[in-house]
Design a protein around this nucleic acid. Structure first.
Lengths: 338, 338
DNA sequence: AATCAGATTGGCAGCGCTGCCAATCGCTGT
DNA sequence: ACAGCGATTGGCAGCGCTGCCAATCTGATT
């Protein structure tokens, strides 16, 4: 397409103004439905816009409007990964709320790499967004400095275990770990193991595990054994890691997984090996994936308010007010595997 | 954060130029590493940038650079949904390629709604992107008109069954359906059913089903029965729909699912009901989700090159050249459920 | 020492739009 | 008929950066 056109200049607001026989600022007002103008003017502008196929240039709009209230109808969102459905869910929640307010979002994927996150923050800030939504509370000093210097609203989502920069929306991963442990203990499980993925990268999983272990220790039944899959979480990794874990400690009576993907893999391992769940081995996950609820025995897990977190993050981004921490909680789903 | 600052103006390129004791255009050249400048100048600029914490304003940059080759380091991507992992996968592939070339992406989610897609196209075009990546070949006339008028490169991804606007990257969904049917027929299955989700919205699923049915008819063993879940695809929907399907036609010997999510649910139904797979009932999916490969019996399915499609779409967006169709194919994974 | 190509640099006019302000219009009240 | 006042409208200076071009500088060459 592009190569064929003889470099035809795109229609500008000035073209519309000329075609409609009005001034530029009048067209601008009509288009943004701001200020006052007559019905007749509105119609003429609308007609000209339609006839010329005018598409406003938001770059120019934002540039011109910078420094004032309006302008910035853009937010940046940084998530660590697109592999795990959790993050698309957060995006989905944020997107819905953002759309409603006429915002557009630019997203960046950090791949769980703090330095990449810092670079992305720089890149996104250069679009002069109205605000930035980032994931988690841990950032490089450089990233924090940029965020502070930008002077814009920042929302850190998902995690509340730590100190935030501005607004924090999420839940306590540590508390999730504690509650998960307590649930298993309450049900009488004593020889408990853990199956997780790379915890040096996924800091939230590490916090859950910390809370989990602490509660077990307090109860006098410390974690028996753990298996850590290298690489990101997946059903395949969970299946394999559980196999290894049980090979080392066949006497376990319950296993806590870093998330539902891993747990699902573990469940498949049990199915394949004929291990009764939860009779012989109890399984506990995290995230409440749809798939886990459709299992023959619904997975015991924790439902996290992902859409709500995304939506709340987006909503708060537009609001004025002091920094605050919004804990949206979570819900333990007993399921039937523990 | 924002409310505390006394409206401090952000650092501009002019500030940097002054601080470094050089001209604005020199700073611009150094920052973009374009044109020539001395090492000494480069160091002074770098020092000033670091000291002032300068963040370039890409809005201004793109506006100024519009009309010329450079400038536009932005692309728009429109996908129908974030619920199904397929689309995040496409994004992931595109993102990786885009990042490499220093592009940023603005994404829009159409929610499978053509008129919403049209609106999103308008919104994204107003950012004056270098190109646009959209999903599928079906668009409203208005959307097509806007796309054409924009004069930018457009890539339609995933589907090659139809006529594209500019560049098309994907595979034939119809052929997928045909091959899936042929595979089941070759294995001796004759009483075949279908479990799908809302097909009026997911046009690609409809194409697969069309190819599937056609092949069955040609072989003289037309589709016996179908169950369509309302709403989007999910394991829960697949599980329930398969239950209904079998209630109506207990004699089926194979079921084709609209995708792996649905098939996974179907598999769970079989597990729960003690239906032997594939002894009593064969299952066939689509997409080759990781999870489906971790099942006790790996799911028979079709692997689609999602990352590759995203990556290729992003790559082609930057290239010059005539419109073309790039078929990246797919791979049938026999698995163990059929 | 004069000359010249090439490297380096600065000045400045926009890119397309919005904010601000002054000008004009349409009515009302007296 | 005329002042008064809000509703409408147009003009124009930027927003921060890049492209273009002219100015200056650096050595090497004659």
């Amino acid at each position: 397409m592009n190569v064929h056109e003889p470099e035809r200049r795109l229609v500008t607001l000035a073209d519309v103004a000329r075609a409609a026989g009005v001034g530029e600022s009048t067209v601008s007002r009509v288009l943004r439905n701001q200020g006052s103008f007559s019905k007749r003017t509105q119609d003429r502008v609308a007609e000209a816009v339609a006839r010329l196929g005018y598409v406003p240039n938001r770059l120019a709009g934002m540039l011109a409007g910078s420094g004032t209230t309006a302008g910035a109808k853009l937010v940046g969102i940084i998530i660590p990964s697109l592999t795990n459905i959790v993050f698309p869910d957060l995006l989905r929640g944020a997107n819905a709320a953002l759309d409603r307010d006429g915002f557009q979002s630019v997203i960046g994927v950090s791949d769980y790499d703090p330095s990449r996150e810092e670079a992305l923050i720089g890149a996104l800030l250069s679009w002069r967004p109205a605000g930035l939504i980032v994931t988690g509370l841990e950032h490089t000093p450089g990233a924090v400095a940029r965020l502070r210097a930008s002077g814009i609203r920042v929302v850190e989502m998902i995690d509340t275990d730590g100190t935030g920069l501005d607004i924090v929306v999420g839940f306590s991963n540590r508390a999730v770990g504690c509650d998960s442990a307590r649930h298993l203990l309450d049900r009488g499980y004593r020889r408990i193991g853990y199956v997780g993925h790379d915890i040096t990268r996924d800091l939230r999983a590490a916090k859950r595990l910390a809370g989990f272990c602490e509660t077990l220790v307090q109860a006098g039944h410390p974690l028996v054994e753990r298996a850590i899959a290298s690489g990101p979480s997946s059903a395949a990794a969970g299946r394999e890691a559980l196999g290894q874990l049980l090979a080392r400690r066949p006497d376990l009576d319950a296993v806590y997984f870093s998330n539902d993907d891993m747990a699902l893999g573990g469940y498949f391992h049990c199915l394949a090996e004929g291990i009764a769940v939860p009779g012989r081995l109890a399984l506990f996950g995290f995230n409440a994936l749809d798939i886990a609820a459709a299992m023959p025995r619904p997975l015991a897990t924790i439902r996290t308010p992902r859409l709500e977190i995304g939506a709340m993050a987006a909503e708060r981004l537009g609001a004025d007010g002091p920094p605050e921490v919004i804990d949206l909680g979570y819900e333990l789903i007993p399921g039937a595997t523990a």
